[in-house]
Design a protein around this nucleic acid. Structure first.
Lengths: 244, 244
DNA sequence: GCAAAAGTGTTTGACGTACACCCATGG
DNA sequence: CCATGGGTGTACGTCAAACACTTTTGC
């Protein structure tokens, strides 16, 4: 009825989108007890010369996750990492490139959250663009709504640590229980069990096996090196766990 | 260097997107102890005449959440509900409308998760389209990747129940503790504390207040009607809670 | 009175919390 | 030998699990 032509009635005013992927990439510098997030200096408009989360626009034939891995690989070289989707921000007007009359293309951002091993993460500086680890407590004003994305990622990181074994994706193959404890305190603060109880709980879970090898770091009794036993952990997967 | 023209170097092959919002809308039929999800019969290609989650494409000037509320309001009339973003699916090829040569527009889906009160939810049947509550255990093959979205939403629902007060968004103003317990068992199965312990734990949390009013349903001792006290709950917000 | 549903209480064991204390090394 | 960090043990309180039992209704 009252169609404009022979073709089916056109959909009312659908928005056209470009889709971006923005990564909140965290790492833990246990030596300095700092939780870091990777920021890059924008090389183009909008927000030229302002810090932002590393991001990219999704290309033809590329999945969202592929885009997330691509942007990550462009910025750092890393062997071990944990990555998962975070949240999707798509309010109209969130990107200045959208025409002010709200006509034209919109920019949607699918954010990803990543945790990488600080010691092995090698930043790829191309000599032009700025790129740096920032302590999460000291990040400046970021481009777009990236501060919001970062806050979201930070919250997710803290939750993940409490009930999933992400820490082991980012620790070396072998590590001391102090290393593990320090990672937790750096991310979560001091507001949880002391080392003694943390140690007892983790060991009782049964997926950390003592390699027997001792390592001495400066003064004090040498620590045992432990290994995360993926097989022993498998049955606990998807079970409600408490690492706190 | 080697730019094609005076204009800045064009971005390599960015994908163009339409963005859809798909809702996994759940409700609990406590009378029959069934967890239901809302399905609609598709009226157009692709997947004509196949069941799917209610969805829509995002319009100009419309936020993702607005689109989620719009599609929900088109299908059911409901006063109380809980809604949150679920996950974003954007793999190339997830929608048959995408040209097979992977050139042309892509269809991305931002999924939302909703919980509504079954008794007050009034389905809007326009006489043409099919719309129905399906027990989650009996949903048929759905259009697109909607079975995957549903599985994702179902998992989220179970998690939410355990550590957040979503149940009270979907219970009547006053309710018996049995009502509450039945809602939990319907969603989570029987694999948690018995009624006695459930009751004791919830009451100790202190945000359920006894109205004093009794209600009798058939045989058996009449039950007290309780009310969720939002003020008493406020300090517990964002704290790790266990409703199990 | 009896079945059915609501509500109370009690026992037990597991576990988190907060400590005190022993062990092994470097300087 | 002592400071430093690693590692072990214990005492206490809290709470989840299981279950027995009482109360109040309909029939």
């Amino acid at each position: 009825m009252a169609g404009r032509s022979l073709k089916p009635i056109p959909k009312p005013d659908l928005a056209d989108f470009k889709v971006g992927v923005d990564n909140a990439i965290f790492s833990v510098d246990t030596a300095q007890n700092r939780l870091l997030v990777l920021l890059v200096m924008r090389q183009e408009d909008p927000f030229l010369n302002q810090w932002s989360l590393p991001g990219t626009l999704v290309r033809q034939g590329e999945s969202l996750e592929q885009a997330a891995y691509r942007i990550l690989a462009e910025k750092i070289r890393v062997k071990n990492l944990y990555l998962e989707q975070l949240y999707t921000f798509g309010n109209p007007g969130r990107d200045p490139r959208e025409a002010p009359d709200s006509y034209g293309v919109r920019y949607l951002s699918v954010s990803y959250f990543a945790l990488v091993r600080f010691e092995e993460a090698e930043l790829i500086a191309d000599g032009v663009s700025g790129i740096a680890w920032y302590p999460v407590q000291q990040v400046p004003q970021l481009a777009f709504d990236h501060n919001q994305i970062l806050a979201y990622g930070y919250r997710r990181l803290r939750n993940k640590l409490e009930y999933s074994p992400v820490a082991f994706d980012v620790l070396p193959e072998v590590f001391t229980l102090s290393d593990l404890y320090q990672l937790y305190t750096t991310v979560l603060g001091e507001n949880f069990a002391d080392y003694s109880n943390f140690r007892a709980r983790l060991l009782k879970l049964g997926f950390l096996c003592d390699t027997g090898v001792k390592v001495s770091r400066g003064a004090g009794r040498p620590a045992s090196l432990y290994r995360f036993d993926a097989e022993a952990f498998a049955p606990l997967k998807d079970k409600p766990l408490v690492f706190i």
